[in-house]
């Protein structure tokens, strides 16, 4: 089908549109299905985009950092910390390394133990935050050297739990896109059914049109236009409602963790505008295919 064919099929042809009487059942079904599917697609899109953002953030933030934990008796803790910092300063791929202060360590523990924890009375290991630089940290080599020079040091380059988290976020993103594809497929199936019902209901009119010399393109056009514009309208309403729902979701916050901030951000708000257009494209091809098949059957 050429661009010209598509333009001709979609051009408003009041004569052809008048020939086929509108049927309430299929009109309402198409409007409802395209509206509901667009509503769901908005949420699937929001989920997919948010998952992508989370995956990127986790991958970026965690990949460039590592933590060194010094487990040592209280008397040796300061000496081993200083020794570890010395090793780190001499290690290629370490951009900076600093020991966390007592307050920072307390802040890390307070979500689990509460704010009144007497840290000074507990044997808390010292944490050292490492920021990686070029040419990248050789974690295995660093572990070997620390094992020899700082016996109580344990290096955690975050890879053990970073990768599953990023994988989970990426899977969630893929799931969002698969959902959008399924929504598109379900929309196509429902509109095909509605178009078939409409074509069958108008079989007598089609027979009359054929008898007076109507080409399939003329007959199909009347149905294609009607279903395409109905789907566009239904999807536009569904998208607006979906975007309103997303807008009402809680904003991203540290307290909410990754469960908040599922909405769109920045240019992402433009993407839902494509949903009604995609709905119309799906309806166009679904109706066109159904009409061609039905007209072949009726000939």
């Amino acid at each position: 089908m050429s661009k010209g064919d598509i333009r001709n099929l979609l051009s408003r042809d009041t004569r052809a549109d008048r020939v086929v009487p509108p049927t309430g059942y299929t009109a309402h079904l198409t409007l409802f299905v395209s509206g509901a599917m667009a509503f769901l697609a908005v949420f699937a899109l929001a989920l997919s985009l948010a998952s992508g953002r989370i995956a990127d953030r986790w991958a970026t933030e965690l990949a460039g950092a590592a933590t060194l934990r010094i487990n040592a008796p209280t008397a040796q803790l300061a000496a081993q910390t200083e020794a570890a910092l010395t090793v780190l300063r001499q290690t290629p791929g370490v951009a900076s390394a600093r020991a966390l202060t007592g307050d920072e360590q307390a802040a890390l523990l307070s979500p689990w133990f509460g704010p009144d924890l007497p840290l000074d009375t507990l044997p808390i290991p010292q944490l050292i935050e490492i920021v990686e630089g070029e040419p990248g940290l050789d974690a295995a080599g660093l572990r070997l050297r620390l094992g020899a020079e700082v016996p109580g040091a344990v290096l955690d380059d975050h890879s053990r739990w970073r990768e599953p988290l990023v994988d989970a976020a990426m899977s969630l993103r893929r799931l969002g896109w698969v959902s959008i594809l399924l929504i598109g497929g379900a929309t196509a199936a429902m509109i095909t059914l509605a178009a078939n019902a409409s074509l069958a209901a108008n079989a007598q009119i089609i027979e009359v049109l054929r008898q007076v010399g109507a080409r399939d393109r003329f007959i199909a056009g009347a149905f294609v236009r009607r279903f395409t514009y109905r789907a566009l309208l239904g999807a536009a309403v569904g998208t607006l409602l979906g975007m309103t729902g997303v807008l009402l979701l809680p904003e991203a916050s540290d307290a909410g963790g990754f469960l908040t901030g599922v909405g769109f951000q920045g240019g992402g708000w433009v993407l839902p505008a494509l949903i009604p257009l995609l709905g119309a494209v799906v309806a166009f091809f679904a109706t066109w295919t159904a009409a061609r098949r039905k007209l072949k059957e009726l000939s």
Partner: peptide, 9 residues
Amino acid sequence: RDQMALLRR
């Protein structure tokens, strides 16, 4: 089918 339509005219 298109040629048939033209014939019917």
